[in-house]
Design a protein around this nucleic acid. Structure first.
Lengths: 324, 324
DNA sequence: CTGAAAGCGCTAACAT
DNA sequence: ATGTTAGCGCTTTCAG
């Protein structure tokens, strides 16, 4: 920046004004500075900017590297943050990189708030984090006061899936759940409630699953081994449903002719043209926008709230009338 | 930091010494400062640290949000960078976030080098970037001098796949390629060369594909429409192979009984227990380590090199003897 | 419209 | 072993 100022024969303060695009420089100077900056390949040092400003205008986001739905969310959060004049700084969680590590990286960057996607942080650690920093949980439940939550109504979402299948004539419906994953208990509950609502509590079947293709595949294989397999399966998420579909395809089992399958998330996997999965959409764009808005509200000092969005059923090609 | 110093009754310089764990403080002071820092929840401001130090010790990494193999690489890069005393700062590429945007974010953070995974940046932009910053391309080819490259030998990798299939008795082998994706021309070439090497140039079949499940599915459907479909398919990558496998499963086509399928990358998708895909491994850990090492070499001022790793065939369950 | 000066939180020389 | 000082690159009063 000093170089630019020298080359333009003015002070750095004036360069700063031009670069930031704030009023306070003559048009002539503005043009000249911009040209010189470009020639010199000057890019402002973000660290120095943020350091000087009291507010960093950075939102920290942790996400799981291998979860397609998190990918969707991250993409939308970049956009939503940008629209609000914020920047998103992402920090990945993976088998060899714990959520704690990911969060600490954000802390050191002085983010103004942390947005945790599908966090599995323990209560204690979450509390500690929330004391330091406005914290927002996306797609996870918590009773903790002091922590904001943005999620879609998982119970209702599964209800949508059940209603849809029942309307198609299904009665023996199984749910391969998410084991201990965030949201899994809500979805399990939603399944049981909705089934009971249709008087089908006796043919409601819940299986321990997980959030990977593997869990879905195992669950489906198990179900096919039953004397009377279900005519429809609701998986915990799209990845899990992918595993289910894969097993069915290999067994030569027609979908949806013999068995209907419903996923959850409406992630990339569900939209693939050759898959066309019926799924419950937690509109990523909407969730992301709500997350950013809530995070900014927390930063502004407002009390943490729980924002619950309404999921929507996306009917595609993996569900159909029950075979009598 | 000033708070900690005040609470401990010492200067900030001494606190700094303790926090960084460098020698120059008495054991008693060290203990006390650490305790107080912990009580106060003090976390050093990374921006200020980096700003002050001439070197940021940050490696910037761009990756594609929805590419499982990139996820594998990112995870390993975090580890490899950490081992070398560096930090990885990731910046995602997605349909709504261009590579240029992602790279600019890194530039503003004053990374010491940029590691671009599977970059599709144009020559001109790449050149400009490389002039500003040591730049390393992973899993992509380039003739550009001034840019480091770490990749595995794609030509040889596909050769491995061809050899394997030929040894199993296959003769009619198709390759669904990556269209214009990084690495696709090498793999296409490797396919044709290897087939020719076995005298099979007449039954070598190359189809335009892409790097998604959709491309694989379309390619496979097309191949099945042929009067004499191939007995084996080599896909551009694992995602593409997933699409192929999916179509085959739906058609009730036995894999590997009727058709063998080989992927590329040995990503998460290939390892799924219910998939067990035969694939060519570009060992993510090895690539990541080479990438970090090369990046550091560039930073140290060494000339850009091209590091070519040897791929390895991972035989799993999607390939078998050709049906006569 | 422009410039001088102070300071964001930290570290690195250099004193003591 | 500890403190003092200067300054990383920028923004922000405040004067001119």
């Amino acid at each position: 920046m000093a170089d630019v100022a020298r080359a333009a024969g003015i002070s750095t303060a004036l360069v700063s004004i031009v670069i930031r695009g704030v009023p306070g420089a003559s048009e002539a100077t503005r043009q000249r500075v911009l040209r010189i900056a470009d020639e010199l390949g000057y890019v402002p040092d973000q660290r120095a900017q943020k350091l000087r400003q009291s507010r960093s205008r950075v939102l920290g986001v942790t996400f799981e590297l291998q979860q397609p739905f998190h990918g969707d969310l991250v993409e939308q959060i970049y956009t939503a943050a940008g629209q609000q004049g914020y920047e998103a700084m992402i920090s990945a969680v993976a088998p060899s990189r714990s959520e704690t590590t990911a969060v600490n990286a954000l802390l050191r960057e002085r983010c103004e708030a942390a947005i945790l996607l599908g966090s599995e942080l323990e209560t204690e650690e979450l509390t500690r984090l929330a004391r330091r920093l406005p914290t927002l949980l996306v797609a996870r439940h918590t009773d903790l006061s002091g922590v904001g939550v943005v999620r879609s109504d998982d119970t209702a979402g599964i209800g949508l899936a059940v209603d849809h299948l029942v309307a198609l004539g299904h009665r023996r419906i199984a749910h391969i759940d998410g084991a201990g994953a965030p949201g899994s208990s809500d979805r399990r509950l939603g399944f049981l409630q909705a089934m009971a609502g249709h008087g089908l509590q006796d043919t409601a079947d819940v299986l321990a699953g997980g959030l990977t293709e593997t869990a879905g595949a195992e669950g489906m294989r198990y179900l096919l081994g039953r004397p009377t397999p279900p005519t429809a399966v609701i998986a915990f998420n799209d990845r899990c449903a992918s595993g289910v579909l894969d097993v069915l395809a290999r067994q030569g089992c027609d979908v949806p002719g013999e068995i209907s399958v419903v996923g959850y998330d409406d992630s990339r996997l569900a939209k693939l043209p050759h898959v066309q999965m019926t799924t419950v959409s937690q509109n990523a764009a909407e969730l992301a926008e709500a997350a950013v808005t809530s995070a900014l509200a927390l930063i502004a000092g407002r009390q943490p709230e729980e924002v619950v969005l309404t999921p929507r059923l996306v009917e595609r090609a993996t569900t159909g009338p029950a075979r009598s």
